[in-house]
C-alpha cells in the first residue's frame, strides 16, 4: 500500500466510522442473544490490504479509541487488536490471497482469536464474578457473524483504499493496454 496523506485520511475515516457503527449499532443489536463485533474484522481487512505495520497501527489506534469512548481500562483492546492486525498483515505478506473466501475465513478465525485474547487478558486482570459457559457461545457466534460481515467490510475498505493498492487486479487490468501499446 502506498501511504499518502489522502490515504491516511481515508484510513482514519474508515476507522472512525467503524468504531462509531460498532458502539452505536452493532453492540446494541442482538441476533440469537449475541451482538456482532466488527472491529476485529475491520482491522483484519485493513491489515490484508495494507500489511502488518498498517494492521498493527490501525489495531492499536482503533482499540485506543474504543477504550477512550467507553472510558474503560486503556490498553486491553489495543493490545488484542494490534495482535490480530499484525498477524493478518503477516499472512498477507507471506501468502498470496487467491480465493474470495480467504478474507472472510481469516476474519472469522482472527475474531475468535481476538475474543479468546480478550478473555485471557480479562481473566489475568481478575474477574470478581462467576463466568458462564454461555461465553463460549458468544465467542463462536461472534466469529460466525464476522465471517458474513467480512464480505461487505473487505469490499468497502478495498474500494475506499483502491488508489493506494499497487496489487489491485482492477488497477493492473486498466494499465495493461497502455503497456502493450508502447
Amino acid at each position: 500500500m502506498i501511504l499518502t496523506p489522502q490515504i491516511l485520511v481515508r484510513i482514519v475515516a474508515i476507522a472512525f466510522l467503524g468504531v462509531l457503527l460498532q458502539l452505536s449499532f452493532f453492540s446494541q443489536v442482538e441476533l440469537f442473544h449475541v451482538s456482532p463485533d466488527v472491529l476485529p474484522a475491520l482491522v483484519v481487512c485493513l491489515a490484508l490490504l495494507g500489511g502488518s505495520l498498517t494492521g498493527a497501527v490501525c489495531g492499536f489506534a482503533i482499540g485506543l479509541f474504543v477504550d477512550c469512548l467507553l472510558v474503560e481500562a486503556l490498553g486491553i483492546t489495543s493490545l488484542v487488536l494490534l495482535g490480530i492486525g499484525y498477524g493478518a498483515g503477516l499472512f498477507r505478506e507471506r501468502f498470496e490471497i487467491h480465493g474470495a473466501l480467504i478474507p472472510a475465513l481469516l476474519c472469522m478465525g482472527l475474531t475468535l482469536l481476538a475474543e479468546l485474547g480478550f478473555a485471557v487478558i480479562q481473566l489475568m486482570l481478575g474477574i470478581d464474578a462467576p463466568v458462564s459457559t454461555l461465553i463460549i457461545r458468544d465467542m463462536l457466534l461472534k466469529s460466525v457473524y464476522a465471517f458474513f460481515l467480512a464480505w461487505p467490510i473487505y469490499l468497502g475498505v478495498r474500494r475506499a483504499l483502491r488508489p493506494a493498492l499497487v496489487e489491485d487486479p482492477k488497477v493492473r487490468r486498466r494499465r495493461e493496454p497502455t503497456v502493450l501499446g508502447t
Binding site: 498493527a56 481500562a73 486503556l74 490498553g75 493490545l79
Partner: peptide, 22 residues
C-alpha cells in the same frame, strides 16, 4: 527491523496505558 520496532513500541505502549489506567 523497522516493522518489529514499531510493533514492540505499540505493545509497550499498550502495557503503559494499561498500567496508567489502573
Amino acid at each position: 527491523r523497522r516493522r518489529r520496532a514499531v510493533l514492540a513500541l505499540l505493545v509497550i505502549g499498550s502495557f503503559v496505558l494499561l498500567t496508567a489506567t489502573y
